[in-house]
């Protein structure tokens, strides 16, 4: 177990190196100087040099990389070009918002997809299965930025139904009910794209499980169909769904830009979007690195977690 963990983490090192190195190289790709925009009119070339020196952009890439890693290890991701505040502060403020949104979306998707997956598997080939199968392949083709409009049009529109506010945010620590009210539509928009994937995955795993002998054993005990489906078949069919859920959480954390910018939610995605528009390179850099690290770590954890949930694998 520990050996496995060690090996997985070791395999991460080269990937993390490339990720961080690539983001450090980002400023070199900028046309002109990354700090040029900070200067007011009438500034001298010397001002530019000073600023570049201050932010360390006058050094060579390897030097910058080593300095960056050194700072990053102590939790220092540099300063925003716009606000001159530590990048890390912004990230720690925004990360929980995005995390909440991602977790909320994941839960929503699972709550809808699990019963659907079980149901379609139990009725495989029947009408319910075909209708849901058709709907889910349609849903799979709706990009998030389209489902956002559909949801807002129907559920946050004074002309249709004003169940939710179209934009805005309240922190969960301040007012839970309000927070949910704001978070519901964005999370649903994120969840919609995941539902068909989860449903299909669970359906096909369930179909395989339902062919197993132990299902026949359970049925021969006189247990009801729903008991057999949910208590006997679901758990052994859900390992890949759990794995994929873990991976999805990582993807969602990195995939909230559209939803956050449309609904004006102060999360990582919106921060990144604003930083891009403002050419605030250090913020972009910091956010990308944090998201990539979270993403990679989550993937690795899921890999390891997989062996924890299956008693058959756990025994080894």
């Amino acid at each position: 177990m520990l050996r496995l963990l060690g090996r997985k983490l070791l395999a991460l090192i080269p990937v993390l190196f490339l990720v961080t190195f690539a983001t450090t190289a980002l400023p070199d790709l900028v046309d002109g100087s990354p700090v040029a925009q900070m200067l007011g009119p009438g500034s001298t070339p010397q001002d530019l040099k000073d600023l570049e020196h201050e932010f360390g952009y006058d050094k060579s890439l390897p030097v910058r990389y080593v300095t960056w890693v050194g700072h990053a290890l102590t939790g220092d991701l540099g300063e925003s070009l716009k606000t001159r505040t530590p990048v890390m502060d912004g990230i720690t403020e925004r990360f929980p918002v995005t995390l909440e949104l991602a977790v909320f979306a994941l839960l929503m998707a699972l709550i809808v997809a699990v019963p659907l997956g079980v149901w379609t598997a139990a009725k495989a080939g029947g009408r319910v299965d075909r209708v849901i199968g058709g709907l889910s392949s349609g849903l799979l083709s709706i990009p998030t930025f389209v489902s956002v409009f559909i949801l807002v049009y129907f559920f946050a529109n004074p002309n249709m139904m004003l169940a939710f506010k179209p934009t805005g945010w309240e922190y969960i620590s301040v007012d839970f009910a309000k927070n949910i009210e704001f978070a519901f539509l964005p999370a649903l928009a994120l969840a919609l794209a995941e539902i068909p994937q989860f449903q299909r995955l669970l359906r096909s795993d369930m179909l395989a499980t339902l062919q197993e002998d132990f299902i026949l054993t359970a049925r021969s005990k006189g247990l009801s169909t729903s008991y057999v489906l949910f208590r006997h078949a679901l758990r052994p069919s859900s390992f890949s769904l759990l794995t994929v859920s873990g991976l999805t959480l990582g993807r969602l954390i990195g995939g909230t830009v559209i939803v956050e910018s449309y609904f004006a939610i102060p999360g990582l995605g919106q921060g990144m979007y604003q930083a891009i528009n403002g050419k605030d390179i250090p913020v972009v850099q910091g956010t990308v690195v944090v998201i990539a690290i979270v993403y990679v770590l989550l993937n690795t954890l899921v890999d390891i977690g997989y062996s924890l949930i299956d008693p058959r694998v756990r025994a080894r």
């Binding site: 990937v15 990720v19 790709l29 990195g254 830009v257 990144m272 993403y295």
Partner: peptide
């Protein structure tokens, strides 16, 4: 290694990062 590194970014993030420069 290179594929893994490229896949380590959520893809839209990478595009966004590039569009910042």
């Amino acid at each position: 290694l290179f594929s893994d590194a490229l896949l380590a970014f959520p893809p839209l993030i990478l595009l966004l990062a590039l569009s910042s420069v």
